[in-house]
């Protein structure tokens, strides 16, 4: 699950970088073993793999200058930026130099955040597996001890149950996903019934289901960059043209509440209760 989640998170990050920096023509993320983790739709994976190989060879030689932090290749009208974060490299090809600082700042913030998040989720999944597996036999052993009517054993049973119950309350932090605001399409925009319901990528909803299993998620919390927040119901985007594009369809009423509008960025996280 963690690999799928990581790939999804990184792909979403690339979409966000591209949304925020329209001059970006190609972007891809790779590791130091030349593995390509994510690419934008415009970037051929084979091309990215060949570039990754050449860039990794350069990066290995950069140990002599303290290890590669970043690299920028310039031509008259284009540039290619390479950012090294943890074990990952992000390559961004863009035209012009006007947005270079913005894309660099965005990348330095976005990529580590996404990686930390996926690492946290992976760690939690591993811990959860370790805790959940022995839970059943331990409880049954305790029950046997309880039947011996020994007072000390009874106390031990209570203590064990408390310890076992604690991990159940440890749910992963709700993942925060950033989207670009879109108006609601089709007939839904005329329907009062859906005026308090936003529509988001079905892939994101699936990730929440993977993360929280049977736990029912009925609401999401939206937050604008200005700090305005609200809770509302959600449904998946039905139109395949808009699904998976990094957008969120928000009814006008909620846009007014949040003082946001089409084209602005907004973060979404599931409400886990």
């Amino acid at each position: 699950m963690s690999n799928d989640l990581e790939a999804f998170a990184l792909k979403s990050t690339l979409i966000e970088v591209k949304n925020a920096c329209p001059d970006v023509s190609h972007a891809f993320i790779f590791k130091d073993d030349d593995t390509i983790l994510a690419t934008t739709e415009e970037t051929n994976e084979e091309t990215a793999a060949q570039a990754a190989k050449a860039l990794n060879a350069m990066s290995k030689r950069a140990n002599t200058i303290g290890g590669l932090e970043s690299a920028t290749f310039y031509s008259t009208n284009n540039r290619m930026n390479i950012f090294h974060v943890n074990d990952y490299y992000l390559a961004v090809v863009g035209s012009g130099e006007a947005d270079e600082k913005n894309s660099a700042d965005l990348t330095r913030i976005l990529i580590p955040t996404v990686l930390r998040l996926t690492e946290k989720i992976s760690d939690f999944s591993r811990e959860e597996n370790l805790v959940e597996k022995p839970r059943v036999p331990e409880v049954s052993t305790s029950t046997v001890e309880e039947s011996s009517t020994d007072l000390a054993a009874e106390e031990l049973t209570v203590e064990e149950q408390v310890e076992l119950d604690e991990p159940r309350s440890l749910l992963p932090e709700p993942p925060v996903t950033q989207f670009m605001v879109e108006n609601v399409n089709g007939l839904y925009k005329f329907s009062d019934k859906f005026s308090d319901t936003i529509r988001i990528d079905s892939g994101v909803i699936q990730q929440w289901k993977d993360l929280y299993g049977e736990r029912e998620i009925t609401e999401v919390e939206l937050e604008t960059l200005n700090g305005q927040t609200t809770r509302c119901k959600f449904k998946p985007i039905k139109d395949s043209k808009h699904d998976g594009k990094g957008t969120i369809q928000i009814p006008q009423r909620i846009q007014q509440t949040l003082q946001t509008s089409k084209g602005e960025l907004i973060t979404v996280k599931p409400v886990i209760e």
């Binding site: 060949q50 570039a51 002599t64 290890g67 920028t72």
Partner: peptide, 15 residues
């Protein structure tokens, strides 16, 4: 690979 004709490079290490 990306058809760019690049001629200048800045490589930043930690030092």
């Amino acid at each position: 690979l990306f058809n760019l004709s690049m001629t200048k490079t800045v490589v930043e290490g930690t030092e």
